[in-house]
């Protein structure tokens, strides 16, 4: 690991000013991804600006009945928060299905959003990789890509975003608050991460030095149900092969509001907008869910070894929507 300076500023303005002057510096959250990548030589910042103790550590109701989550809130704290469990089960379940309690106790909301891909070539500095070293090539296309993307990939990169939390936040229409020297801005979660195109080294739409300060959730839809489900190689403590987060509101048997997001299929949480549009106003039945999700996943372009993800994701989404519809009809909370 390369040597680096360490700063722990007391407020966001100082944090932002410190990184603005340090083109190869980085923010430090819990460190569970960044320190790992520094050990592997994938990241080599010369300055760490520790933002894990900034005063962004609250989960509060907003004036409109939504929820504002500070970027320094630990993943474990957020997962068990009573308002999250009651109003946004998809978020609590997504967090609880990620990593281990030890890691969730250290990981912050800001760091979770910006964690990098688990593509094995990206993590191995002895291998070429367009994301780590632009222009060197993408060995995953021909090599080990069983865990990698089936949607939105490019010839330059087929990596996936590994976050479970981000999938739930995409389904909840979350907004990310960002601070920088140019003043604050608000980014819809679904615009935070980007597809690789011809610049796979850029995971997100953030510029260097932009600091995530909070994530805001709109008020929950009255009577809507939500859930998260994840398929993985072992029962726990593993990244997703495919996952789905969904929110469904049914009125008189018809879909009134629906959000579906897939995880581990693309370089960003994949909002199934085609399926959502197809479902609006349709009967909340397995048949319509199946039609709509097939329509969405028609865009999939699997590689040699990851085609299994398409039917897996479809079955998970259809069975989850069916269960959410049944729960709505049954009236149980």
């Amino acid at each position: 690991m390369k040597t680096f300076q360490y700063e722990r500023p007391a407020d966001a303005d100082t944090a932002v000013a410190l990184l603005a002057d340090a083109p190869t510096g980085a923010y430090l959250g819990g460190g569970t991804n960044l320190v790992d990548l520094m050990k592997l030589g994938v990241a080599a910042p010369d300055l760490l600006v520790d933002v894990s103790r900034l005063p962004f550590d609250a989960v509060e109701e907003t004036g409109t009945g939504g929820l504002r989550i500070g970027a320094a809130v630990r993943n474990s704290t957020l997962a068990v928060h009573p308002l999250v469990r009651e109003r946004y089960p998809v978020l609590s379940q997504a967090l609880l299905s990620g990593a281990s309690t030890q890691l969730r106790n250290a990981a912050t909301v800001g760091g979770n959003l910006l964690q990098r891909t688990r593509c094995p070539y990206f993590q191995d500095v002895g291998k070429p990789c367009n994301k780590r070293r632009p222009g060197t090539g993408c060995p995953a296309r021909e090599g080990a890509h069983r865990d990698l993307a089936v949607l939105g990939a490019s010839e330059h990169c087929v990596a996936t975003n590994p976050s479970d939390m981000a999938v739930a936040l995409a389904a909840l229409d979350a907004i990310v608050d960002v601070a920088s020297g140019h003043g604050p801005r608000r980014v819809p979660l679904t615009d935070l991460h980007r597809l690789p195109g011809d610049a796979p080294d850029r995971d997100t739409t953030l510029r260097h030095g932009e600091l995530i300060t909070a994530v805001e959730l709109p008020p929950p839809m009255p009577g809507a149900r939500s859930a998260y489900r994840k398929a993985r190689d072992r029962a726990s403590y593993a990244f997703a092969l495919a996952s789905v987060g969904a929110v469904l509101q049914v009125r008189e048997g018809l879909v009134h509001h629906v959000r579906v997001a897939f995880g581990a299929l693309a370089a960003k949480p994949w909002r199934a907008r085609t399926a959502e549009e197809a479902l609006l106003g349709e009967p909340a039945t397995t048949a319509s869910f199946d039609d709509a999700v097939r329509h969405e996943l028609a865009a999939a372009r699997p590689l040699r070894d990851n085609g299994y993800k398409v039917p897996l994701a479809r079955r998970m989404a259809v069975s989850m929507l069916t269960e959410l519809a049944a729960a709505s009809a049954g009236g149980t909370p």
Binding site: Y6, L103, N105
Partner: peptide, 15 residues
């Protein structure tokens, strides 16, 4: 009783 993995935490951040 907040359990963590000591291998991924920088000691300097735990002052």
């Amino acid at each position: 009783d907040r359990r963590v993995n000591a291998c991924l935490l920088l000691a300097v951040s735990l002052d």
